[in-house]
Amino acid sequence: MWRKPTITEGARGWLMISPPFFYALALMAVPLCAIVLFSFWTQDFMTVDTTFTLNNYREIAEKPIYTALLQRSLYVSTCVTIVTVLLAFPVAYYVSFYVKPERKSLWLFLITIPFWTSYLIRVFLWKVILGFNGVINTGLINIGLIEEPLTFILYNVNAVIITLAHAFAPFAILPIFVALEKIDRSLLEAAQDLGENRVMTFFRVTLPLAMPGVVAAVLIVFIPTIGDYVTPELMGGAGGKLIANMIQTQFLALNNAPLGAALAVVAMVSVSAIALFFVLLNRRWLRGRS
């Protein structure tokens, strides 16, 4: 007698996740593989030579401009990450520990308000704030602190760091807040009952338990900022260009897409190596604390 085949729970789970998995694979893995493959080709104006070659990577290694742009991009991303996380942690800590539970949703709602406006609009607003005749310079001149407008806050790396730190602040606040919310408050009370003051309780109990959120915030901020194109283009000026701007120049202005693809691969490998090293270092640190 024929019996209908039974589907195990594991097989049913694979059937449920396979459509989104292959959809994500097609949208992410296939373009990445295409970029990697393209980086081993060459292009002469509109003609693409599909012969396998390492000339693009050799050119990146030999020309100092590409190394300088990559180092500047890593420096900017590191500075943005440090500034953003240091400013985001007190906000997340205050909302988690000092805001009443029924008002936390309102605070999180207010934190996400910047997402309501276009990213381009926020960048242009920072140009108005940091400009030669902007809000900061005009205010400092009016109160007599400076006689001439400050020139180091716009069209350079400083302007890029300030703008990116503001743009990615909510991305850092939310994961840190989630990690702080998961901390059992009785552990803090136990630490204080054992003689620890609030400062030592924070460093010995709260901060270690919040490290998963801090690590998530670091990765969420660091990884996309190194590939940001709009902010350096509008705020960086000639001295604030990053590797993403050079990639755009190779693809669109110089008609050298294989070299642009090679630059993208080098940037991705660099970011992946640094992120993986940071995650492994954090795991080792947490293991040593346990």
Rank of each mutant, 00 (worst) to 15 (best):
M46D: 07
T138F: 08
A172K: 01
F177R: 03
L187N: 14
A169D: 00
M211N: 10
I162H: 05
A210R: 08
S96C: 06
D44P: 02
V48L: 04
A275T: 06
G139Q: 04
L254T: 11
L154D: 15
H166F: 14
F222L: 03
K182T: 15
Y75H: 09
T231E: 03
V128Y: 15
V83S: 08
D49P: 07
N245P: 06
R3N: 10
A167V: 15
R12M: 14
F40A: 02
L263E: 01
Y66I: 00
N197Y: 00
L27K: 08
L281F: 13
V265S: 01
R12V: 11
F40I: 06
L87Q: 08
E196Y: 12
I226K: 15
V128C: 10
A210N: 02
T6M: 11
Q250R: 12
L209I: 13
V128K: 12
S270C: 14
M28N: 11
E102S: 13
L207D: 10
L32W: 05
I136C: 00
Q248G: 04
A172C: 04
G239V: 11
L37Y: 07
V230S: 03
D49M: 02
W116H: 12
P175T: 14
Y94G: 04
S186E: 15
K241V: 07
A273C: 10
A159K: 01
D193S: 12
L187G: 12
I223T: 12
K127C: 03
W2V: 15
I173Q: 03
C79T: 09
I113M: 14
W126E: 02
F171L: 15
L70V: 03
E102I: 12
G131L: 06
K4E: 15
L120N: 09
R204I: 08
I129Q: 07
T151Q: 12
A169G: 03
T84F: 00
S105P: 11
T225V: 13
G227A: 01
C33I: 03
S73I: 09
F168I: 10
I60F: 06
A61T: 04
F124P: 00
K4Q: 15
G134D: 03
L242F: 03
R12I: 10
N197C: 04
Y93M: 12
T78R: 03
A88Y: 11
M211S: 13
T47M: 10
A159C: 08
Y66T: 01
G13I: 09
I141Q: 08
R103I: 06
G227M: 02
L276A: 12
F177E: 07
